[in-house]
Amino acid sequence: MSPEVKGQITYEIPDREIMSSGHLACPGCGAALAMRTCLKIMGPRTVLCVPACCWAVIDGPFPYSSAGVPVVHCAFETAAITATGVRHALDMRGVKDVTVIAWAGDGGTFDIGFGALSATAERNENILYICYDNEAYMNTGIQRSSATPVGAWTTTTPSQHPKEEPKKNLVEIMAAHRIPYAATATVAFPDDLTRKLEKAKAMTGFRLLHIFSPCPPGHKSVESDSIKISRLAVDTNVFPLYEVENGTHYTLSRQSKDVPIKEYVRLQGRFKHLNDQAIAAMQERVNREWKRLLKRIECSE
């Protein structure tokens, strides 16, 4: 059913730690783990531009910072363009060996920052945009975003009226900009994340990584289940791991396990109001999207 994934290599994750302990993330936070892995790969010659999002808090209050690299806090909707400004300034100063990363949550990416993101991608600015996606406005208390999946409870989509609309497909939209690189990843597969970060680091132009990021308080899950949940997101095809090069060349990064979506849903309180019928409808939607992705991959080859 799935195309064979060729050339899978296990990547070594560097021992070095750039990010320090003492950050303010909740236990089991996928975004903290994602940053830790990201900085291990990207190294100290990295600048982070962080808009309003959980990471604006996680990094620590003035005058502290846990990232270990320069952090430019910026307004909610400006991650992509702030990073662009930093990039051009560094270029003008002759600093070429530094990677500038816009590091934003799903609200700052899918919603309020989307205009600037699209424009920055269209101009193919030389930055790496990383969206850690916890599928709602978690920092402000779990309000729905356009990254919230259909059926999910949030404080603005109460369980009597859970979110009715499907999640916006970020990678497809960004691929339509024909940017050099767009990919999905999760913290459950650090080898895959490592490979994609290394690949993105070596490229120039606009690159985007979309990282699924479990959030125990927002997903109403157990802290120790975060890795399990992010693995199941992939293995149920809810969040497939794939890459898109130049906007048209799709490649699958991991074989499907076709695990029933129920396994994923039952670990998260945000879905607990869903009955079997609703879960079956979700399964159907996931199957349809998965088939569509396979077609895109097929067309690419």
Binding site: C49, V72, C74, T82, G85, V86, H88, A89, L90, M92
Partner: peptide
């Protein structure tokens, strides 16, 4: 803002 913060 980004450019100025980065010294340009």
């Amino acid at each position: 803002i980004g450019a100025s913060q980065a010294g340009a």
